[in-house]
Design a protein around this nucleic acid. Sequence first.
DNA 1: ACCTGAACACCGTTCAAGT
DNA 2: ACCTGAACACCGTTCAAGT
Lengths: 185, 185
Amino acid sequence: MPTPERTTLEEIVAAARDLLDDGGPAHVTMQAVAQRVGVRAPSLYKRVRDREALLTLVSTRTALDLGASLAEAGDDLEALARAYRRFAHEQPEGFRLILGGPGDPEVIARVSAPVLRAAGAVVGEDRALDAARLLTAWVTGFATMELLGAFRLGGNVDDAFEWGLGRIVSSLEPQETAPIRHSGR
Amino acid sequence: MPTPERTTLEEIVAAARDLLDDGGPAHVTMQAVAQRVGVRAPSLYKRVRDREALLTLVSTRTALDLGASLAEAGDDLEALARAYRRFAHEQPEGFRLILGGPGDPEVIARVSAPVLRAAGAVVGEDRALDAARLLTAWVTGFATMELLGAFRLGGNVDDAFEWGLGRIVSSLEPQETAPIRHSGR
DNA sequence: ACCTGAACACCGTTCAAGT
DNA sequence: ACCTGAACACCGTTCAAGT
């Protein structure tokens, strides 16, 4: 005889995200998640294979949220970079989780799309990938090091971000015909 | 009556690093570490406060190794960037661990020193910090995204690295008098 | 002074039994 | 068809007892 469903996958993932936000991955226990959605831990295994799969779901949803934030930010490279950094500040644990595990190629493609489009508009289609990678790598590293606390010594970090952003973007703009250096490997 | 010491802190940290390297943080259990150094788990608590403290030690040692690799790499910005990336490839788990937790300011200062010195030689003392941050953020992000698998689609990744490196470094060199863009916040 | 077995609390996961 | 208590394996940590 059927029993009414007392929770949903959506609720479970949301609960896991909340727990992650305040306490990091260690705080995301199956029991804590279960309690939050009003169920016992074993019941979670009806919707989720195991804890690792749940964390992967959290990572994917968080990455898609990042993608949505970027899509909202417009098609200006600087606006995209600022939105990316803002996301890292607002959801540091989620940001770290995304960067930690291996990423789902499809999700990566979706998140990258806005940056790729904006980059294409500036440098042309065939350099778009290189340009997008340059900017994305820089913002990713900047936010990571900020979260790490590596920028504590000296100067205003917001200014450092804007300075670096200006450097990166202007190095991409076409009127700058800097010689392309080929250095040996 | 004294008992001979059957292990050392150094041995314990080395064992934890080995376990981290093949299996990630989840593989670093107190029991596994203990077994590797030939002792029972409770004995570890004579040298280490708890598991978290042990992982912090591993992070610190790994970061100092990275610093040593950089110091060996010379005082060329491009050589430093390549050495940094090589380290991330050789010890991906250690690299992720360093980037994960909060960093010890003293360790960060030590690891940054070679990049700061090389940057100062190129752009002068007063821009050295900005330049070092620009390069470090980019390499950190590049390596992180590589480990994530975010660079799987399209093109040779080594070439992308060299291309980006050339862009970054040449954007720093003094003969390039690109206008500094100030964008609003 | 260090090492150990035993014990405790907690966690992930399985499963038979309930409805 | 979903939910649960009970159970199991495993983990981090403490501590009294050994040498």
